[in-house]
């Protein structure tokens, strides 16, 4: 163990722990159930959680900078609503996509500006954003709006064949591209480095002459953009827009990021950790559905317990 910890930098340990957890959970499923260890089950993990992966990527930026974004679930709902309502009104698909992404980013920008300019806790500001976005959904329509646009439906149902007879959807491709871009931005650009610096110690970052203001607002724009994109993926997945879509999804995203080893205090963590976190949550759901006799609420309890374990582990690491 000491040899291992000498070779592996300790900052990677939480992510490795998450990967081990994923492998264990998946291995347990494969050992217990026939047909669990198939490529398609893994592919389904990505298909069913593509939107959550995108959300977790955006959330990672915010949490790394030391903030939190509670509005993401509501922005997903708002995006599905705008998509559905826009398509129903006969808008062309590109215009709808553009409008959704613009609305999400603008909401993020506004929240970021309020958080930074007026020095109000991110928790409260994004809580207001959460109320606002949900309320706006219901302003558009109180009912669920189904999506009948043929282009949209074609993209939603299109399957991409991978070697081995495994199929994935375009959602997965988009999610993976987002993850790749997020990794690049965080580790290969000045902006990404500043995000880590601000999360580590904001005053130090400021004294070092880093653009903290731009970065702090920027992470919320990124999170808003990711939420809107996740909303588009969710509309593709559900083929409807509804104000009660994605209730509590912000908690899933935060849980995934925390389980992925990102410190909620900011400054430490990786996008890929969040992705593995999402896969862990997905595997738990798959396990419970394979089991059949366990009810869905066990998912919530298991997620809570996992959160607890990872927080406790983080706590001991920070102390050291």
């Amino acid at each position: 163990m000491t040899a291992l910890s000498q070779r592996v930098p300790s900052r990677f340990l939480p992510v490795i722990a998450t990967v081990v957890l994923f492998v264990l959970a998946f291995g347990a499923g494969s050992a217990r159930y026939d047909g669990f260890a198939s490529g398609q089950v893994i592919a389904n993990l990505f298909i069913d959680n593509a939107f959550l992966i995108v959300l977790a990527a955006g959330m990672t930026f915010v949490i790394l900078s030391g903030g939190i974004d509670l509005s993401v679930g509501s922005v997903v709902a708002l995006s599905t609503m705008v998509t559905a309502a826009g398509l129903r009104a006969g808008w062309p698909v590109p215009l709808v996509v553009l409008a959704v992404l613009l609305i999400g980013s603008t909401l993020g920008l506004l929240m970021g500006i309020v958080i930074h300019k007026f020095d109000i806790q991110p928790f409260i500001v994004t809580l207001a954003g959460m109320f606002l976005a949900r309320g706006l959904c219901f302003l558009i329509s109180v009912e669920s709006v189904s999506i009948k646009n043929s282009t949209f439906r074609d993209v939603a149902t299109a399957a991409i064949e991978l070697p081995g007879g495994v199929t994935i959807t375009y959602n997965v491709v988009i999610a993976l591209v987002v993850v790749a871009v997020a990794v690049y931005v965080l580790h290969r650009t000045r902006f990404g480095r500043t995000v880590y610096a601000v999360g580590g110690n904001e005053s130090s970052a400021l004294l070092m002459g880093l653009p903290t203001a731009r970065t702090k607002v920027g992470v919320y724009v990124i999170s808003g953009f990711c939420s809107a994109l996740a909303g588009l993926l969710f509309s593709l997945y559900m083929l409807s827009g509804y104000g009660l879509h994605a209730v509590g999804m912000e908690l899933d995203a935060i849980a995934a990021v925390v389980i992925g080893g990102t410190l909620l205090a900011g400054g430490v963590g990786y996008v890929l950790g969040g992705v593995v976190g999402v896969l862990v949550l997905g595997t738990i759901q798959t396990l419970i559905s394979f089991q059949g006799t366990l009810s869905s609420w066990w998912t919530k309890i298991v997620i809570g317990v996992l959160l607890l374990v990872f927080i406790a582990v983080q706590r001991t690491m920070v102390r050291r």
Binding site: I254, A255, W297, I301, G304, L307, I311
Partner: peptide
Amino acid sequence: IIATLVLMTAGRGVAML
């Protein structure tokens, strides 16, 4: 925030249970 998030997530599951 985090400490009580645990019970917020798991609590509804417990209530369902």
